[in-house]
Write a protein that binds this DNA or RNA. Structure first.
Lengths: 138, 138
DNA sequence: GTCTAACTGAAAACGGTTATCATTTCGAAA
DNA sequence: TTTCGAAATGATAACCGTTTTCAGTTAGAC
């Protein structure tokens, strides 16, 4: 009877490191497919399945933010903050900024309770055009 | 050279009426597939393609609200209000209520502008548990 | 070095949505 | 009422992102 490594621990793999590095290197939301293409292009051969698996686990662990685009694609971004927060995403280049939302939580709670709802959560995404893209337009 | 009916006009069809009726009859968000199944079950034979086409056009016309669930399914609901508004959706039964959002718009604009973003739009969904479902729990 | 659970990835399955295209239907004009 | 073309329909296939499968590989504890 030999001792076992603690079940549930994650192992350090080349692919896992590459995926986290790719996420950290980007200030904007990226799709699994984009990250996969980027890794392959950079010589980091990695299966698409593996990319999906790591992103999913990172999201479960709360290490990345998940955003669903209006078109339905799921995007991932490395989390700067542990706190509950929201994003302002540039419609053109995808760059995003984080913001906290105390007023927003208050608003959601107040409105929900006044309508008889409890256990309130909210999903908010703000879209706009960032300063650089606006400048590039003209 | 014969005169033509105005291009772009919509024609009144049995299927179109059935789809609108199904939407009007429900207080909660429904998926295209659900509506299709409901029509078929009710003897209103209608193609799935046609359901998608009508829902899409209604959404384009602003006649229905569109909501993307966290799981990715697109849901549709008849619009009570023409104004910009948001929904509070019951996590358990899907029932939804509408609410306006002047503070929310202000918040989104203010935060976005302070970060250099313009042409701001926002997507907000609030989820909770409605009074009936809460009562049914215990 | 040994061993095994964790990880990998090619290929297939999945599921919702959209495109294709031959057929049907609405409705304006004659 | 009949005609006729644009619009609508719907069965089928294509699409596309994501998940599952499963045989093979690898990290890392001992």
């Amino acid at each position: 009877m030999t001792a076992r490594p603690p079940a549930g621990a994650h192992r350090a793999t080349r692919q896992g490191r590459a995926i986290v590095a790719a996420l950290r290197a980007s200030p904007s939301f990226r799709s699994a497919q984009e990250i996969h293409a980027e890794l392959c292009a950079g010589g980091q051969k990695t299966g698409l399945t593996t990319v999906y698996r790591h992103l999913q686990r990172l999201a479960d662990d709360g290490a990345v933010d998940v955003l669903r685009q209006p078109e339905g694609d799921v995007m991932y971004r490395y989390c700067a903050s542990d706190e509950h927060h929201h994003h302002i995403v540039c419609r053109e280049c995808g760059r995003s900024a984080e913001t906290d939302c105390p007023e927003l939580s208050d608003w959601a709670d107040r409105v929900a309770h006044s309508l008889g709802y409890s256990d309130v959560s909210h999903a908010v995404e703000v879209f706009g055009v960032c300063a650089d893209c606006r400048a590039a337009r003209r």
